[in-house]
Every structure is written in C-alpha cells, then in structure tokens.
Write a protein that binds this DNA or RNA. Structure first.
Lengths: 209, 209
DNA sequence: TAGATTGTTAATCGATTAACAATC
DNA sequence: TAGATTGTTAATCGATTAACAATC
C-alpha cells in the first residue's frame, strides 16, 4: 500500500470534507459519486479515483454513506488527533489567525504564542499570554510542539524554521514570503503566500476575456 | 497568440518575480535558465517553457537580463497598473490584510473598506474609515472598483460576491471558506482557504515518513 | 569563429477521464 | 433477479522534462 499520494489528491481532501460535512448537516445520509460530482464541479471518476487511493469506502450499487465517508476522510486528514503547535510571530496577522481559525477542528492544538517585540510580549491573544521568543528552547524541551505556524517577517522566517526543526518541529505553516528550506526534505511545509496569491489574481484579471 | 496560459504557469510567475527582484537587489544583472533553476529548485527547461508562453525574453548564448525580465514579468502580472479594490469585511483578518499587504506592489489600490458591524463602522483601519456596507451600491456607482477582497463569514460570502459582480467587480480575492459561484465563469476568483491549507498540513504530517 | 544558451519540438511522465467488469 | 454504482483498468489529456537546432 506504499504508493505515494499526490499533492493534487491531498489538496482536494479538505474540500471533500467540507462538502460532506454540509451534506450531513442537511440530513443527507447517502450520496453517489455522480451526485457529489455535480455539487462539487468535478467528475465522478475523479472522486472515485481519489477515494480509492485510501481504500474502498463505498458500496457498489448503493453509493457512499455520508457519515462514514466523512469519518474516513477526517482520519486521513488527521483530524481525529491533535498536533500540538506554536505560533511564532504575533503581529496583526498572527493575532488574526488565532482569532479566526478553530485549530481544534483542523487537527491542531495551539499551545503557545511567541514574539520578539516588547510591545507584544506579555499581551493576551486568544487564550494565551504571548511569550518572549528567547524562551522557545526551554518551552520546546518541555512541551514538544510538533508543528509551528510562522507569521514572521520574510527575513527571519528561514532561520527561525531551521531552529525549530532542530527543536523537533515536524510541520510548518508558513505565512511569510520567504522560502523555507529545511535539512529534512520530508518535513511538510505548507506555504500561504498571500502576496503571490494577490499577484496571480492581478494576472488573471488582465488576461481574462 | 491565443493559446491559453495554464494555471500552473500563472501560479509560478509571482515566484519568478520574487526571485528576480532579489537577484536585482543583489546586483545580479544577468542570469541563465540554468543558474535560476538551481536557485529556485526547478528545471531550466521549465523556466524556458514558462517564459516562452509570453515571448522570447532571453538572448541566445547569453541568458536573460534580470532587469528586463523582471519588467516583462511585472507587466504580465499586471503590476504596471493598479486595479482599484474594496475590502468587504473588516474583522481581525481584514484589518490584518490591510496592515500586512502592500497592495500597490501587487497590482491593486485599496479605495474603500466596508463592514456591517456597528462596532467596526466608523473606525479607522490603515488609511481608511470603515464604511457601512449599506453604502456599497452608491460607492460602486461612483468609484467603480474592479476588484473585491472578501474577508467575510462563510454564510454571506457567496451572496455578497454575486451582488458585487452585478455592481461591476471583475475579480475576487476570497478568504471565506465558502465557494464563490458567479454568473460569469470567466471572472477570476482567487481563494485563500486557510482552513483547508491547515488540514492539508495535518494530512501531510500524518503521512510523512 | 567557437562556445554558450536560448527557443522550440519531441519524449516522458503523471493526472484526469472514460469504460466496464465486479458486486451490492 | 435486475438495476445501480462502485472499484479498477485502459485511454486520453496536459504538464514537465529532455534534446537539439537556431542564433547570439
């Protein structure tokens, strides 16, 4: 079963998860790949291919049970456990993330917030008092966070990431424009390049007919 | 020249732009696809293919002039003009965007901020006083924004987007988890699904060896 | 001119779609 | 059983990589 799952598939899983959750909330208990494909604007074939990367979740002649498919996808996404995480950098963007994202519903548990600015250290953000980044070594040694969310200036992000890697962090959510380059190439880095995204939009607006 | 440019290419352009900007800042005036490919972790072939979607910007036997290539890409990205834009929804996330993104460097000029909450309307965010969303029709009739940034709750985003489409908006940057479904399928919508991105990270962390 | 490197065509690879046998 | 719909194999499509002739 060791065939690698492509990024294309992994990036579609959260969308399946969202649609299935909505269906369940609407009281739908059963769905065929055909019906789901129409709602999601995909082909039925693609849905079946995607799901079969992980196992046969459907029932021939019937379709898929929404609840059990939702549970399966949640497990694949790792939402059935919580990855402990620290937020590094708590400017406007970091604080907005803490306020807007329900980490627990996405597979993570925030356990600490760090910054280097005296203006921010000691302030309360969400349920946390922002700690001094100087305390990060000690904190990691004790709490062992497995993930880090980086909302830092571009210049410092790569170095901070390297440092956290050495401290045992196994996954990064990166909001800085910088390119994170770790020792271990297997550690996942999920980039959210807002500036790039905005430029892509600009490009599409120019070329749209 | 009417062959369509693929999304894969468009999404790489901002990255080229960033790297070339860095090179220029470092005083590098000339670069070959080979050198650039090593820095960017791509193949030289892909770089040449990508650039040749838009024209022959290089010089055989020499390479690419960094400044002129940068200018060409800026033009393709539409950074040589400014798309007027409104921000709809100015909670923590909206305010963070205004503070963090230099829109002018990404091809946009923010011309107004709107919200529906009495707590926010009238407050100052960046250089703007947040307006009541009730004024949006009048505002659009007068100012004709071509783009909208949506930092709204999921439930209302699709309806707001439809309304803005009718008011003449030609591009959307969407931060809500909702799926924006417009009348005109040619209007670009750039989604920033933070929750999805986080779940993808969770998934990769579980499957990483 | 000789060397280098592009622009572009051809080959490969991977992802999506179509088809259909298996089976509920 | 007959009908429906999956799981899976085969066909197609598109994107990436390799190769090389054009040319600076």
């Amino acid at each position: 079963m060791e065939k690698k799952i492509s990024s294309a598939v992994i990036n579609r899983l959260p969308r399946y998860y969202r649609y299935l959750g909505d269906l369940l909330a609407d009281g739908v208990t059963k769905i065929s790949s055909q019906e789901l494909s129409q709602r999601m604007n995909l082909t039925a074939s693609q849905i079946r291919q995607d799901l079969n990367c992980f196992g046969g979740f459907g029932q021939q002649g019937y379709g898929y049970r929404v609840q059990s498919l939702l549970d399966e996808i949640a497990a694949i996404l790792g939402l059935d456990r919580l990855h402990s995480a620290v937020l590094i950098g708590c400017g406007k963007m970091g604080a907005a993330l803490v306020n807007r994202i329900t980490f627990e519903k996405r597979g993570f548990k925030l356990i600490g917030i760090f910054d280097n600015s005296p203006d921010v250290i000691g302030t309360t953000v969400g349920d946390f008092v922002v700690k001094d980044i100087a305390e990060i070594d000690e904190f990691c040694a004790k709490e062992n966070p497995v993930a880090a969310f980086l909302a830092l200036p571009r210049e410092v992000a790569p170095d901070v990431a390297r440092k956290l890697e050495k401290l045992g962090v196994k996954g990064f959510w990166n909001f800085s424009a910088g390119y994170i380059n770790l020792e271990d190439k297997n550690i996942p880095v999920e980039n959210v390049h807002l500036g790039d995204s905005l430029m892509s939009l600009s490009c599409r607006m120019n070329t749209a007919k």
